[in-house]
Simulated scan of single mutants.
Amino acid sequence: MDVPLELSAYTRVLKLASTPGWEEFSQIALIAGAGILLVGLMGFIIFLVMGVVPGTGI
């Protein structure tokens, strides 16, 4: 992996970067929250199935 040691490479990236507006931030937060809830729900369903099906319980 080639990591540039020149400061100009980092300043160029920082100049291109911009902070998101409120609409973009809220949309990203909503999608990330929905993903977290979906993964948690899937884990809970697997936990329930593991407890109900004989021989797979903890």
Rank of each mutant, 00 (worst) to 15 (best):
S8P: 01
G33M: 07
G43D: 05
A29L: 14
E6R: 14
T11P: 02
G43N: 01
A32G: 04
G55F: 06
L37D: 01
I31C: 01
P54T: 02
G40P: 00
L38A: 10
T19R: 15
A34P: 01
I45C: 05
D2C: 02
T19M: 15
M42E: 04
L30P: 00
L37V: 04
M50R: 15
W22Q: 14
L48Y: 07
L38W: 01
K15P: 05
P54E: 07
L16C: 12
F25Q: 13
I31S: 08
M1G: 11
A32P: 01
I58H: 08
Q27G: 00
Q27T: 04
T11V: 03
F25W: 15
I58L: 06
G43R: 02
S18H: 10
I46Q: 08
W22V: 11
A32Q: 13
R12K: 14
L30A: 10
G33V: 00
M1E: 06
Y10V: 04
G35W: 06
F47Q: 09
L16A: 09
G40W: 05
I31P: 00
I28W: 14
P54G: 07
K15I: 08
T19W: 15
P4D: 08
E23V: 04
L37T: 05
P54C: 05
V49Y: 14
P4N: 09
L5Q: 09
V49L: 15
F44T: 09
A29E: 11
E23A: 11
S18T: 10
T19Q: 14
A17S: 13
V39T: 09
P4G: 05
A34M: 06
A32H: 12
F47S: 12
L38P: 00
L14Y: 10
V39Y: 09
P54F: 06
E24N: 13
W22R: 15
M50A: 07
L48F: 13
Q27R: 15
Q27H: 11
T19V: 15
G43Y: 01
Q27C: 00
Y10A: 06
L37Y: 01
V13W: 08
L41K: 07
G21T: 14
V53E: 01
M42L: 13
L37N: 01
T19D: 13
I36S: 02
I58C: 01
A29D: 07
L5N: 13
R12P: 01
I45E: 10
L41Q: 08
T11M: 02
T19I: 15
E23T: 06
V49A: 08
I31G: 00
L5R: 04
A29H: 12
L48M: 09
S26R: 14
P20R: 05
L48D: 12
V52L: 15
F44N: 10
E23H: 10
S26E: 14
S18K: 15
L16R: 12
E23K: 12
M50K: 15
G51F: 10
E24S: 15
L41H: 06
L30D: 07
Q27D: 03
G43L: 03
A9Q: 05
W22I: 10
E6F: 05
P4C: 02
